[in-house]
Design a protein around this nucleic acid. Structure first.
Lengths: 160, 160
DNA sequence: TATTGTTATACTCTATAACTATA
DNA sequence: TATAGTTATAGAGTATAACAATA
């Protein structure tokens, strides 16, 4: 158990990480704010899903999810079909245009990160990724782990 | 140099870290939003400073800083005096009430972190802290390093 | 003329609550 | 009655631009 000051320092680092996120967000394509990017990323990774599942993965309220999805649907990047087994539900799926948009935004963020982190060792990049994933997991967002393995097992090793 | 996918994964983890920050923000005292907490934390750590310096440390525009400082000044947590050497500038300083507020919010965030991270090793907590600090540093926020040493020197070792 | 700081405006993200449709 | 999703509203954060005062 660390002294309080160490947790305070981590809290401060977390609070200040916004500057990094803003820098990253600035690279996003036109008409594609952060919320839209998050939706496309999850749909691209996990495939089609219901709104409720998407809200869970985004870790935001469903009303927020609904707005984000409406934004990307308006631009033709996803479509929403009704779930035949439960007409209250809607299935969200990325479209080919959405895939193109996703590819573009993924590449630009990766490029910026690669540039900013050019002095980093591969291992440090991997460790940071794993530790943030674990942090999210410890905060109750159990879908954050990199692979669907036991959330508490990975420590500071690089992802496979 | 890592493959693009690794940077994409880090970008995604960063984008999803908002849920952690929101959880942390929920523990803040009444009338003390995240922006106010950041101002108090920096003034408590570095002592009195000019608005421009504060904006630099916060890594946000000065207009944003001005709003945050106005909020905490309205509550008596900081005072703003004119700089005698340059009447355009204002010196911001935390008040005793501000110190009390800062103590309260530091303790509550540290407590939440200690609880959420109770399964973590001391070393992992320290590593995450250092890596985020280095990340901010690599993104051009050079005041983010834990100690005033060379920003690129620390790697994945725990802070001293 | 340049710089420090404030204010007005606008945009994004978020949550709560009220509402519709379906189970 | 309970659940899935949408919409309205409000609060917080941010940036840009126009402005005031001083250098």
């Amino acid at each position: 158990m660390l002294v309080q000051r160490h947790y305070e320092e981590l809290a401060r680092q977390l609070s200040a990480i916004g500057a990094v996120k803003r820098d990253l967000a600035r690279t996003l394509p036109q008409d594609c704010p952060d919320g839209s990017a998050a939706v496309l990323t999850l749909l691209g990774r996990y495939g089609e899903m219901r709104m409720s599942r998407l809200a869970e993965l985004l870790a935001v309220d469903m009303s927020v999810t609904s707005r984000h999805v409406a934004h990307v649907a308006d631009r033709g990047w996803v479509d929403r079909s009704s779930d035949p087994t439960d007409k209250r539900s809607r299935i969200v799926r990325i479209t080919p245009e959405g895939e193109r948009q996703l590819k573009e935004l993924s590449e630009s963020s990766a490029q910026l990160l690669a540039h900013r982190l050019r002095g980093w060792s591969d291992n440090d990049v991997a460790q940071l990724t794993v530790l943030i994933s674990r942090l999210r997991s410890s905060f109750g967002d159990c879908r954050s782990v990199l692979r669907c393995s036991r959330p508490t097992e990975q420590t500071t090793r690089a992802p496979a």
